[in-house]
Design a protein around this nucleic acid. Sequence first.
DNA 1: CGGTATCCTTCTCGATACTG
DNA 2: CAGTATCGAGAAGGATACCG
Lengths: 124, 124
Amino acid sequence: MQETAPPTSGGPQIAAPHRELLDQVLDKWSLQVLDQLCGRPSRFNELRRAIPVVTQKSLTATLRRLERNGMVERVVVSSRPIAVEYRITPLGTTLQDLIDALLRWTTVNMADVERARARFDDEA
Amino acid sequence: MQETAPPTSGGPQIAAPHRELLDQVLDKWSLQVLDQLCGRPSRFNELRRAIPVVTQKSLTATLRRLERNGMVERVVVSSRPIAVEYRITPLGTTLQDLIDALLRWTTVNMADVERARARFDDEA
DNA sequence: CGGTATCCTTCTCGATACTG
DNA sequence: CAGTATCGAGAAGGATACCG
Protein backbone atom coordinates (compact mmCIF):
# COMPACT_ATOMS: atom_id res chain seq x y z
CA MET A 1 0.00 0.00 0.00
CA GLN A 2 2.79 2.48 -0.43
CA GLU A 3 1.26 5.91 -0.45
CA THR A 4 3.05 8.87 -1.94
CA ALA A 5 4.06 10.38 1.38
CA PRO A 6 2.35 13.70 2.09
CA PRO A 7 5.15 16.27 1.79
CA THR A 8 4.24 18.67 4.54
CA SER A 9 0.50 18.77 5.00
CA GLY A 10 -1.70 16.00 6.18
CA GLY A 11 -4.39 15.91 3.57
CA PRO A 12 -5.13 16.82 0.01
CA GLN A 13 -5.74 20.47 -0.73
CA ILE A 14 -8.87 21.89 -2.21
CA ALA A 15 -9.41 20.01 -5.45
CA ALA A 16 -8.93 22.19 -8.52
CA PRO A 17 -12.46 21.62 -9.92
CA HIS A 18 -13.99 22.58 -6.59
CA ARG A 19 -11.92 25.72 -6.29
CA GLU A 20 -12.76 26.63 -9.86
CA LEU A 21 -16.46 26.22 -9.23
CA LEU A 22 -16.30 28.51 -6.21
CA ASP A 23 -14.38 31.03 -8.32
CA GLN A 24 -17.13 31.02 -10.92
CA VAL A 25 -19.94 31.31 -8.47
CA LEU A 26 -18.59 33.58 -5.74
CA ASP A 27 -16.96 36.31 -7.82
CA LYS A 28 -17.70 39.99 -7.58
CA TRP A 29 -20.78 40.09 -9.81
CA SER A 30 -22.12 36.59 -9.31
CA LEU A 31 -22.72 37.16 -5.63
CA GLN A 32 -24.84 40.18 -6.37
CA VAL A 33 -26.73 38.56 -9.23
CA LEU A 34 -27.55 35.51 -7.15
CA ASP A 35 -28.52 37.68 -4.21
CA GLN A 36 -30.93 39.62 -6.40
CA LEU A 37 -32.36 36.55 -8.14
CA CYS A 38 -32.92 34.76 -4.85
CA GLY A 39 -35.37 37.53 -4.07
CA ARG A 40 -37.23 37.20 -7.34
CA PRO A 41 -36.83 36.53 -11.06
CA SER A 42 -35.52 39.55 -12.92
CA ARG A 43 -35.14 40.88 -16.42
CA PHE A 44 -31.78 41.79 -17.90
CA ASN A 45 -32.07 45.55 -17.58
CA GLU A 46 -33.73 45.16 -14.22
CA LEU A 47 -30.56 43.44 -13.02
CA ARG A 48 -28.46 46.18 -14.55
CA ARG A 49 -30.32 48.80 -12.58
CA ALA A 50 -30.31 46.72 -9.42
CA ILE A 51 -26.57 46.16 -9.46
CA PRO A 52 -24.59 49.38 -9.60
CA VAL A 53 -22.51 49.59 -11.57
CA VAL A 54 -22.20 46.58 -13.79
CA THR A 55 -21.69 46.94 -17.53
CA GLN A 56 -23.71 45.05 -20.11
CA LYS A 57 -20.69 43.02 -21.02
CA SER A 58 -19.88 41.91 -17.49
CA LEU A 59 -23.50 41.20 -16.65
CA THR A 60 -23.94 39.09 -19.77
CA ALA A 61 -20.77 37.16 -19.01
CA THR A 62 -21.81 36.61 -15.42
CA LEU A 63 -25.28 35.40 -16.36
CA ARG A 64 -23.90 33.03 -18.99
CA ARG A 65 -21.44 31.58 -16.54
CA LEU A 66 -24.08 31.12 -13.86
CA GLU A 67 -26.41 29.59 -16.44
CA ARG A 68 -23.70 27.20 -17.60
CA ASN A 69 -23.10 26.08 -14.02
CA GLY A 70 -26.81 25.48 -13.53
CA MET A 71 -27.35 28.27 -11.03
CA VAL A 72 -29.73 30.39 -13.08
CA GLU A 73 -32.21 29.72 -15.84
CA ARG A 74 -32.69 31.95 -18.87
CA VAL A 75 -36.29 32.16 -20.00
CA VAL A 76 -37.02 33.89 -23.28
CA VAL A 77 -40.50 35.38 -23.54
CA SER A 78 -41.15 35.82 -27.24
CA SER A 79 -43.02 39.09 -27.17
CA ARG A 80 -42.51 42.38 -28.91
CA PRO A 81 -39.93 43.48 -28.15
CA ILE A 82 -38.24 40.37 -26.85
CA ALA A 83 -38.19 39.82 -23.10
CA VAL A 84 -35.77 37.64 -21.17
CA GLU A 85 -36.21 36.62 -17.59
CA TYR A 86 -33.56 35.15 -15.35
CA ARG A 87 -34.52 32.88 -12.48
CA ILE A 88 -32.64 31.06 -9.80
CA THR A 89 -32.71 27.28 -10.23
CA PRO A 90 -33.21 24.69 -7.50
CA LEU A 91 -29.47 24.07 -7.66
CA GLY A 92 -28.93 27.80 -7.31
CA THR A 93 -31.05 27.98 -4.21
CA THR A 94 -28.73 25.51 -2.49
CA LEU A 95 -26.21 28.33 -2.57
CA GLN A 96 -28.57 30.86 -1.04
CA ASP A 97 -27.99 29.90 2.59
CA LEU A 98 -24.23 30.02 2.08
CA ILE A 99 -24.35 33.44 0.50
CA ASP A 100 -26.58 34.69 3.29
CA ALA A 101 -24.12 33.26 5.81
CA LEU A 102 -21.24 35.00 4.06
CA LEU A 103 -23.06 38.32 4.08
CA ARG A 104 -23.92 37.91 7.73
CA TRP A 105 -20.28 37.15 8.44
CA THR A 106 -19.17 40.40 6.83
CA THR A 107 -21.74 42.33 8.83
CA VAL A 108 -20.73 40.79 12.12
CA ASN A 109 -16.99 41.10 11.59
CA MET A 110 -16.60 44.25 9.52
CA ALA A 111 -15.67 46.36 12.53
CA ASP A 112 -12.91 43.96 13.57
CA VAL A 113 -11.63 43.83 10.01
CA GLU A 114 -11.46 47.59 9.82
CA ARG A 115 -9.56 47.75 13.08
CA ALA A 116 -7.11 45.20 11.72
CA ARG A 117 -6.66 47.23 8.57
CA ALA A 118 -6.05 50.43 10.51
CA ARG A 119 -3.46 48.70 12.66
CA PHE A 120 -1.72 47.21 9.62
CA ASP A 121 -1.68 50.49 7.72
CA ASP A 122 -0.31 52.33 10.72
CA GLU A 123 2.65 50.02 11.18
CA ALA A 124 3.58 50.51 7.56
CA MET B 1 -41.49 59.46 6.11
CA GLN B 2 -41.04 59.68 2.41
CA GLU B 3 -38.70 56.96 1.34
CA THR B 4 -36.74 57.13 -1.86
CA ALA B 5 -38.87 54.67 -3.75
CA PRO B 6 -37.04 51.41 -4.48
CA PRO B 7 -36.56 51.40 -8.25
CA THR B 8 -37.05 47.73 -8.96
CA SER B 9 -35.70 45.70 -6.10
CA GLY B 10 -36.96 45.67 -2.57
CA GLY B 11 -33.84 46.27 -0.56
CA PRO B 12 -30.36 47.58 -0.76
CA GLN B 13 -27.84 45.43 -2.56
CA ILE B 14 -24.72 44.03 -1.05
CA ALA B 15 -22.85 46.99 0.37
CA ALA B 16 -19.62 47.74 -1.48
CA PRO B 17 -17.34 47.32 1.56
CA HIS B 18 -18.88 43.95 2.34
CA ARG B 19 -18.51 42.73 -1.20
CA GLU B 20 -14.95 43.96 -1.29
CA LEU B 21 -14.10 42.11 1.90
CA LEU B 22 -15.46 38.87 0.51
CA ASP B 23 -13.44 39.46 -2.66
CA GLN B 24 -10.26 39.80 -0.63
CA VAL B 25 -10.91 36.78 1.52
CA LEU B 26 -12.55 34.29 -0.83
CA ASP B 27 -10.33 34.63 -3.88
CA LYS B 28 -8.51 31.82 -5.61
CA TRP B 29 -5.44 31.69 -3.36
CA SER B 30 -6.91 32.98 -0.10
CA LEU B 31 -9.29 30.04 0.19
CA GLN B 32 -6.43 27.61 -0.07
CA VAL B 33 -4.16 29.52 2.29
CA LEU B 34 -6.87 29.78 4.92
CA ASP B 35 -7.78 26.14 4.48
CA GLN B 36 -4.18 25.15 5.05
CA LEU B 37 -3.64 27.49 7.99
CA CYS B 38 -6.83 26.34 9.69
CA GLY B 39 -5.15 22.95 9.90
CA ARG B 40 -1.97 24.31 11.41
CA PRO B 41 0.49 27.20 11.37
CA SER B 42 2.81 27.04 8.40
CA ARG B 43 6.03 28.51 7.12
CA PHE B 44 6.23 30.44 3.86
CA ASN B 45 7.84 27.75 1.77
CA GLU B 46 5.69 25.14 3.43
CA LEU B 47 2.66 26.97 2.08
CA ARG B 48 4.27 27.17 -1.35
CA ARG B 49 4.71 23.44 -1.43
CA ALA B 50 1.25 22.79 -0.02
CA ILE B 51 -0.52 24.92 -2.60
CA PRO B 52 0.30 23.92 -6.12
CA VAL B 53 1.05 25.96 -8.00
CA VAL B 54 1.29 29.39 -6.45
CA THR B 55 4.18 31.71 -7.24
CA GLN B 56 6.16 33.55 -4.60
CA LYS B 57 4.68 36.81 -5.74
CA SER B 58 1.07 35.70 -5.53
CA LEU B 59 1.55 33.93 -2.23
CA THR B 60 3.22 36.98 -0.71
CA ALA B 61 0.44 39.22 -1.95
CA THR B 62 -2.23 36.87 -0.64
CA LEU B 63 -0.61 36.58 2.77
CA ARG B 64 -0.20 40.36 3.04
CA ARG B 65 -3.83 40.90 2.15
CA LEU B 66 -5.04 38.31 4.63
CA GLU B 67 -2.75 39.79 7.26
CA ARG B 68 -4.07 43.28 6.58
CA ASN B 69 -7.64 42.06 6.98
CA GLY B 70 -6.77 40.42 10.26
CA MET B 71 -7.24 36.85 9.07
CA VAL B 72 -3.66 35.64 9.52
CA GLU B 73 -0.78 36.63 11.73
CA ARG B 74 2.83 36.86 10.61
CA VAL B 75 5.29 35.73 13.24
CA VAL B 76 8.97 36.31 12.60
CA VAL B 77 11.27 33.91 14.38
CA SER B 78 14.67 35.61 14.42
CA SER B 79 16.87 32.62 13.90
CA ARG B 80 19.58 31.85 11.38
CA PRO B 81 18.42 31.87 8.71
CA ILE B 82 15.27 33.82 9.34
CA ALA B 83 12.06 31.87 9.85
CA VAL B 84 8.53 33.19 9.40
CA GLU B 85 5.42 31.45 10.54
CA TYR B 86 1.90 32.26 9.47
CA ARG B 87 -1.02 31.47 11.76
CA ILE B 88 -4.72 31.86 11.54
CA THR B 89 -6.09 34.52 13.92
CA PRO B 90 -9.24 34.25 16.06
CA LEU B 91 -10.93 36.48 13.51
CA GLY B 92 -9.73 34.16 10.79
CA THR B 93 -11.20 31.14 12.51
CA THR B 94 -14.64 32.74 12.30
CA LEU B 95 -14.33 32.13 8.57
CA GLN B 96 -13.40 28.49 8.95
CA ASP B 97 -16.92 27.13 9.25
CA LEU B 98 -18.02 29.10 6.20
CA ILE B 99 -15.14 27.85 4.11
CA ASP B 100 -15.85 24.31 5.21
CA ALA B 101 -19.49 24.80 4.28
CA LEU B 102 -18.50 26.10 0.86
CA LEU B 103 -16.23 23.14 0.24
CA ARG B 104 -18.93 20.74 1.37
CA TRP B 105 -21.34 22.47 -0.99
CA THR B 106 -19.02 21.92 -3.95
CA THR B 107 -18.63 18.27 -3.03
CA VAL B 108 -22.35 17.67 -2.71
CA ASN B 109 -23.33 19.53 -5.87
CA MET B 110 -20.41 19.00 -8.21
CA ALA B 111 -22.17 16.22 -10.09
CA ASP B 112 -25.23 18.38 -10.74
CA VAL B 113 -23.03 21.25 -11.84
CA GLU B 114 -21.19 19.05 -14.29
CA ARG B 115 -24.46 17.80 -15.73
CA ALA B 116 -25.60 21.40 -16.15
CA ARG B 117 -22.35 22.26 -17.91
CA ALA B 118 -22.63 19.32 -20.26
CA ARG B 119 -26.21 20.27 -21.13
CA PHE B 120 -25.25 23.89 -21.71
CA ASP B 121 -22.25 23.01 -23.85
CA ASP B 122 -24.32 20.61 -25.93
CA GLU B 123 -26.95 23.16 -26.80
CA ALA B 124 -24.28 25.54 -27.98
C1' DC C 1 14.78 31.16 4.23
C1' DG C 2 11.76 34.64 2.92
C1' DG C 3 11.26 37.80 0.55
C1' DT C 4 11.63 42.49 -3.28
C1' DA C 5 12.21 44.37 -7.86
C1' DT C 6 11.68 44.18 -12.65
C1' DC C 7 10.00 42.90 -16.94
C1' DC C 8 6.63 41.07 -19.79
C1' DT C 9 2.51 38.60 -21.08
C1' DT C 10 -2.25 37.70 -20.37
C1' DC C 11 -6.61 38.67 -19.30
C1' DT C 12 -10.18 41.47 -17.41
C1' DC C 13 -13.03 45.29 -17.84
C1' DG C 14 -15.13 49.54 -19.37
C1' DA C 15 -16.45 52.39 -23.27
C1' DT C 16 -18.47 52.62 -27.52
C1' DA C 17 -20.94 51.31 -31.49
C1' DC C 18 -24.10 48.39 -33.78
C1' DT C 19 -28.08 44.55 -34.33
C1' DG C 20 -32.42 41.48 -34.29
C1' DC D 1 -35.16 45.11 -24.92
C1' DA D 2 -31.33 42.27 -24.89
C1' DG D 3 -27.81 41.57 -26.50
C1' DT D 4 -22.91 41.10 -29.87
C1' DA D 5 -18.44 43.11 -31.66
C1' DT D 6 -14.43 45.59 -31.21
C1' DC D 7 -10.89 48.34 -29.12
C1' DG D 8 -7.84 49.98 -25.69
C1' DA D 9 -6.34 50.81 -20.79
C1' DG D 10 -5.06 48.76 -16.71
C1' DA D 11 -4.61 45.15 -13.44
C1' DA D 12 -3.30 40.43 -12.47
C1' DG D 13 0.01 37.03 -12.82
C1' DG D 14 4.29 34.42 -14.23
C1' DA D 15 9.46 34.34 -14.98
C1' DT D 16 13.65 35.80 -13.58
C1' DA D 17 17.11 37.97 -10.91
C1' DC D 18 18.76 39.66 -6.77
C1' DC D 19 18.97 40.82 -1.39
C1' DG D 20 19.13 40.58 3.93
